[in-house]
Design a binder for these strands. Structure first.
Lengths: 306, 306
DNA sequence: TCAAAAGTGTTATCCTTACACCCATGT
DNA sequence: ACATGGGTGTAAGGATAACACTTTTGA
């Protein structure tokens, strides 16, 4: 029997962006070498793509994934494996809770320092520096292409008085890639200072950026934050998690009012003390809203920056 | 040389949901046998998934795809091909314009009659009938599972005074599937009357439903409708296209105001006469907004139904 | 002259955003 | 006493949804 390696046969792997918030830091599950995102081949005993990923992550981490959704499928030629055979990566976003961090949980912002806009006083603003280098790359000319590039840089990075929009994380990464400001990029020049931040193996940093952007967009209109919370929590803790994900502060009073008047939570009757202030009421997520609302209608107010 | 058919090798195909609006009807490009959605294998000369699909559709239809985005990747075991080899389908949503309809362009609502809610006077409402059969399926009980099912049916189909939400098209199809009310479903009983509408080969009707739902959701916050319009158009024509996609009427005055005050369009100076009324001003899409806005901020007002 | 489609103006209501202030606990 | 985080009330501005009405053409 002859072997015919036809074009249609490719290697398929599942890549997981598993996120949890530990110690006020959004973290992603990684494998040490690279580092890289956990990934594995699709196996025939997996009943579905999502099922395969679910079983596989639960086995590895011992934690149930509260929420899993497909992120994106990648198959660019740069991803071909050594033998020249094509690799298709089906990526998933998963949300979970973990007790302690451990080395396997890397912080989002180790890879994207510029994505955390919560002001740390006195530190130099990475966005200002990146913005300068980006505008240099776009060029000062007035032709169409140059103008479009400059506009893109201004919008995605919130330059020249435009608002910073957390959910544009992927566009920002892609712009840095095009400008040759990340080491993964083939367009880099020898003399430019690269953007700060750790890299990952293959194109995993891009996949992570996809997950970050998707999650940030999603928390604005879907009640998914709660998958990252313990069974009981205070509104302050909830706000901390949202701020960690958005990389940005939210307006306290409006946040509380919005969460409550949308009936997303209900009081448990318990309180949480010992934070050096007035004890807070504990709440629990009203899971029913997932059925009642079906996708939409859960806005969280982000504070305007600039 | 021996053949080792390892689990990791699968057949990968690209499936296209190509949509255009012709004669006020949203249509999808189909192949006659089945009918089914156009699909073809991923080839090694395709530089990327999207590139492969793009080249491939343009070659077939002679039309440039204005907008292409990945829809979803399917790989359930039911999709295994005859030899038991797994099939992975990467689906894409594409928007284009065509001059005339022709047999290859099937209407959306041939497959989903219940999704068009624009009142045709005197005709029986398919949703009312489906709703009745669905509620029968959910059961009258009071246990948790029954109650959840009933709530899902009410929300997705807008029963009992809840609003009809166009973008829930996929959830509606999936509910009908679970209830055994579509022929594709394995849960069907012999004695129930099925939902109206033509079927497609394989799971292509589900993929189409995914595309319909995605596009309906998207027109509410992204200026993609314009990919379906000619270079110059009247606001009335634009509204007609939106209504065709949403399967629902929109509020005329608010629609016009919203489109104009968001600076989505600019006057061309020409007018369009011969519709049996006052001639309308012609507009053109301001492509710049794609760069200026980057994704967000383009709401189109849908009229509340019920 | 009338129907049909285009286009303008105005109002009530809700949601978003922001500000100012009071409350209960630990040190 | 006072710092810290928890919690409430209320007002200004903008977006939304709905209303009624005028204008310009073709038949």
């Amino acid at each position: 029997m002859m072997c015919s390696v036809d074009d249609e046969r490719v290697r398929t792997e599942l890549v997981a962006v598993i996120t949890a918030v530990v110690d006020g830091v959004p973290r992603v599950l990684t494998a040490d070498d690279g580092p890289r995102l956990p990934s594995g081949p699709l196996r025939s005993d997996h009943r579905s793509l999502q099922g395969g990923l679910r079983a596989w992550v639960e086995q590895q981490t011992g934690h149930r994934l509260g929420y899993v959704e497909q992120l994106y499928t990648f198959a660019d030629p740069g991803r071909a494996s050594a033998g020249g055979r094509r690799v298709i990566s089906v990526s998933y976003l998963g949300l979970t809770r973990v007790g302690s961090s451990g080395p396997a949980w890397a912080g989002w912002y180790d890879f994207f320092p510029w994505e955390d806009r919560r002001p740390e006083p006195d530190l130099p603003d990475p966005v200002a520096q990146l913005g300068e280098r980006l505008l240099q790359w776009t060029g000062r000319g007035d032709d169409d292409e140059t103008a479009r590039r400059r506009l893109r840089a201004e919008v995605t990075f919130g330059l020249h008085g435009r608002p910073w929009r957390p959910e544009l994380a992927l566009q920002r990464y892609e712009l840095l890639y095009e400008a040759g400001l990340v080491p993964e990029s083939p367009f880099g020049a020898a003399d430019v200072r690269l953007a700060p931040g750790a890299t990952m193996a293959h194109d995993h940093r891009r996949i992570l950026a996809t997950g970050v952007a998707r999650l940030r967009a999603m928390i604005q209109y879907r009640p998914v934050v709660f998958e990252l919370m313990p069974a009981e929590f205070t509104l302050g803790q909830l706000q901390d998690v949202v701020e960690a994900l958005a990389g940005q502060h939210v307006h306290k009073q409006n946040f509380r009012r919005l969460v409550q008047q949308q009936d997303l939570v209900e009081e448990t009757g318990h309180t949480h003390a010992g934070t050096g202030g007035r004890p807070a009421m504990l709440f629990r997520f009203r899971r029913e809203v997932l059925d009642e609302r079906q996708v939409g209608g859960t806005k969280l107010p982000v504070q305007r920056v600039r």
